[in-house]
């Protein structure tokens, strides 16, 4: 993190502190010190990290399933033109549907447990990844795929050695969008139908704090959500880019 970002964060905390002191009501806007104290307490005593863990596990399982699905669909799209056409059509219908809007249907079909959450995450993640992958496949240089033909590669080998590195930048940006949408979807779903398993996720944590009018606790949860977002963006996705597209010289 560069120095400028530190200054921004400091400025943000300072102005928050100032405004919250003027407001002077912890139920409306707790001061940053109160939030920090609460965050510490919730992490140690309240097992906030366990809630965060539950949400992240749910997201990553869903993300993994969607990635495999999206990649297989792309693989078949290379071989059969109609597969791409069909999924493009499905994409145009289903992509605009917000996850939270189809949640009531998912509950009827899958119940209120993990199955519904996974279905929701897959819906939120699959379409952005597919959109990105298709875009990359369509603009994929024909000469490159002909190189594969020249070597008499099978579909799988061609996909792995030629297409996959080529579509990697789009794939990673698709996963990034997908991750952000999955995170939102999971938290809304947890807020919508509460606990899954003996401990719920971050959404459930927020609901619990909300129904007991614990505003400071809500802010503690929000801080955790922000931190998870930053960590994933900076350390996971940037790392993924470094070991793939940057190493392969694909990042301009």
């Amino acid at each position: 993190m560069n120095n400028r970002k530190f200054i921004y964060i400091l400025l943000l905390i300072l102005s928050w502190e100032l405004i919250s002191r003027v407001v002077g009501n912890d139920q409306l806007m707790p001061t940053s010190l109160v939030i920090a104290e609460k965050l510490w307490y919730e992490l140690i005593e309240g097992k906030l990290w366990l809630y965060a863990f539950y949400s992240i596990v749910a997201i990553f399982i869903g993300l993994g399933i969607s990635t495999i699905l999206a990649l297989s669909i792309s693989l078949f799209s290379i071989k059969y033109k109609w597969v791409m056409d069909f999924f493009k059509f499905l994409n145009s219908i289903l992509h605009p549907l917000p996850g939270i809007a189809i949640l009531p249907i998912l509950i009827i079909w899958f119940g209120v447990g993990y199955k519904a959450i996974f279905a929701l995450v897959i819906h939120s993640v699959l379409w952005p990844i597919i959109t990105n992958l298709f875009l990359a496949l369509e603009t994929f240089p024909k000469t490159l795929s002909m190189v594969g033909d020249n070597y008499e590669m099978g579909l799988l080998r061609k996909f792995w050695y030629i297409y996959f590195p080529g579509i990697m930048p789009s794939f990673i940006s698709g996963i990034k969008t997908g991750w952000a949408r999955a995170f939102r979807a999971v938290i809304s779903a947890e807020m919508f139908f509460g606990v899954i398993g003996a401990t719920g996720g971050l959404g459930w944590y927020l609901v619990k704090k909300r129904v007991f009018l614990d505003t400071t606790g809500i802010f503690a949860g929000l801080v955790v959500i922000i931190i998870i977002g930053i960590i994933l963006e900076r350390f996971v996705f940037n790392k993924l880019e470094k070991i793939t597209i940057e190493k392969w010289g694909l990042k301009s």
Partner: peptide, 11 residues
Amino acid sequence: LTISHPDGQLA
């Protein structure tokens, strides 16, 4: 499990 009354009935 927290859920609205109508969804709970459905479930």
